[in-house]
């Protein structure tokens, strides 16, 4: 024990350690506050929080779990991108190969189940925020940010659904994306679309409407696979990351986790 401690102290007093952490060992109030304040990630927390706010039975840790699951999805997702090609000819085979031949082929399992878990966790986080009335002033705006995050999380899961390119994938996406056909004005079977025409030539038809924009074609085909891949791996995750940063920042700025006034 004594040896371990002195080795530990040797490192903690070294120039390298000091240059990374900028503060001493978090043993007293001051250094513990510094531990939070001088770290860009931990700095999303306040230095001190209400005792009741961090009780597990109050938050159910659901916001935190949603965030962890998002991280787990990002990490496994990046690894999956090494093996997966978003092309109709390869997509399915890559998924099968991933399970059969790749060491740690468990990645896809973790990624898939994690996605489902994230969907459930985010609902439950919303439920707890609702039941504790934490959307009330001054947290109205952050609740709104949360609702957008909820929508994006569902879309993230939905776009990922197509990528294995199996029967489950294309038909679930076909059912889901058929809705876009009926968008008012923007879908060719939607109300008002027929009004948008120039000299009798309709502007909105099967090859130009909202569904076409989403799928890059009139059916769920190669175009849809590529678009969903880009949305799933780049666009939506980036937007979600930014919004999560805003969300956390506002939790802090709005006075930390809520509690009775």
């Amino acid at each position: 024990m004594g040896l371990l401690n002195s080795v530990g102290n040797y490192f903690r007093e070294s120039q390298v350690w000091g240059s990374i952490f900028r503060h001493g060992v978090p043993r007293d109030r001051r250094t513990r506050a510094m531990a939070i304040l001088s770290n860009v990630f931990l700095h999303l927390h306040p230095v001190a929080v209400r005792k009741s706010g961090i009780r597990l039975s109050f938050t159910w840790c659901m916001g935190g779990l949603t965030f962890f699951l998002f991280l787990a999805e990002t990490i496994t997702g990046v690894l999956l991108m090494f093996y997966y090609r978003p092309v109709v000819e390869y997509a399915y085979a890559d998924i099968v190969g991933l399970r059969a031949h790749v060491t740690l082929g468990l990645l896809r399992e973790i990624h898939r189940w994690g996605a489902h878990a994230m969907v459930i966790a985010i609902w439950l986080h919303m439920l707890r925020v609702f039941l504790t009335g934490s959307y009330k002033p001054p947290r109205e705006f952050n609740w709104g940010v949360g609702v957008v995050l909820l929508t994006l999380t569902l879309l993230l899961s939905f776009t990922g659904y197509l990528l294995p390119w199996d029967q489950l994938a294309i038909w679930a996406i076909t059912v889901g994306s058929n809705m876009a056909r009926a968008t008012p004005f923007a879908g060719h079977e939607g109300p008002g679309a027929a009004l948008l025409q120039i000299g009798g030539v309709p502007l909105i038809h099967g090859g130009s409407d909202a569904r076409f924009l989403l799928l890059g074609g009139t059916v769920v085909g190669p175009g849809a696979l590529l678009r969903f891949y880009v949305l799933h791996c780049v666009f939506i995750p980036v937007v979600v990351s930014v919004l999560i940063a805003v969300h956390f920042w506002r939790v802090r700025k709005d006075g930390g986790i809520s509690g009775p006034l």
Partner: peptide
């Protein structure tokens, strides 16, 4: 939830809770 003035430091109380949650998750 009462006791608005009872504050605890994030390090170690919250950070460790988060770490445990992460591991369990």
């Amino acid at each position: 939830e009462s006791g608005a003035d009872d504050k605890v430091l994030v390090w170690p109380d919250l950070v460790y809770t988060e770490l445990i949650a992460l591991v369990l998750c």
